Simulated scan of single mutants.
Amino acid sequence: MTDITTALVNKPVEEAIQYLLEQYPGAVAFSTSFGQEDQVISDIIWRNHLPVRVFTLDTGRLFQETYDVMDLTMARYKQPVEVYYPDTTAVEKLVTTKGPNSFYESVENRKECCGIRKIVPLNRALEGVKVWITGLRAEQSENRQGMETLEWDEHRHLYKYNPLIHWGYDEVLAYLEQHKVPYNKLHDKGFISIGCAPCTRAIEPGENPRAGRWWWEQSQKECGLHG
């Protein structure tokens, strides 16, 4: 266990983020997709006036409801959210050569689309970042169950801080209710994990939270942002 990991043990989220900011001033960033978990973290950051860079990825294929909650969030907290878009030339080439829905045809095509619309913009957003805060929870998928609160991302050479990794879904909902945090109304319609509109469906009772993502394929339900 590293010294930084030891220092975070049993600290409330806001205190842990403050500690990370002291260790890496100006180099702590939070990526939000405006899902329920991310809304919890955004509220913690802004409620406690923590100087964390907050950014989001706009793939160009998001639900209108996602834009709605983005607008509500920015109006509520009066704080900036940096928006990163995919490279226009890369998107134009992809759609021109393979059409607008190539991701349905194969896992390789889907990962190519995710790479252009999400991975490349993310890597740009994380340039110079030493600590990347995420809204990951262990319950969300099988390959997230082994994740730790603080991990070293060897590929990007930064720490990934997952403050809600051990939170249950009920804890997330309770926090949102307690603090009256804006949330995506699609969550009320069975959309637990929300990504791009063509690649997300509502889940049935008892289904894994990630079952609604890329439902037409048998994969790890990941796009590459987190492995």
Rank of each mutant, 00 (worst) to 15 (best):
T97H: 10
M70E: 12
G135P: 07
R156F: 00
E127R: 12
W152Q: 05
M70C: 01
Q79F: 11
L72M: 14
G115P: 05
K93G: 09
E154C: 07
E127I: 00
I116Y: 01
M70D: 02
T149E: 15
M74S: 10
L136P: 06
V91D: 04
T96M: 12
S106C: 06
Q140S: 05
K130E: 15
K98C: 05
Q145L: 08
I133M: 05
L158Q: 13
H155S: 15
K118I: 01
E65K: 00
C114I: 00
V95F: 07
W152M: 01
Q140M: 00
L150I: 13
E65D: 13
E139G: 08
R124Q: 15
N143H: 14
H157I: 10
V95A: 09
Q145C: 02
M70P: 04
Y77S: 04
Y67N: 06
R76Y: 06
E92L: 15
V83E: 02
L72Y: 11
T88C: 11
V129G: 05
Y77R: 10
K93P: 09
G135C: 08
R144D: 14
E82C: 01
R117Y: 04
R110D: 12
R156N: 11
W152L: 09
T149H: 10
Y104F: 13
E148N: 12
V69W: 01
E139R: 05
V120D: 11
S102G: 07
I133N: 04
V81A: 08
V131Q: 06
I116Q: 07
G135M: 03
A90L: 13
P121W: 06
C114W: 03
M147T: 00
Y84W: 12
E82R: 10
H157Q: 15
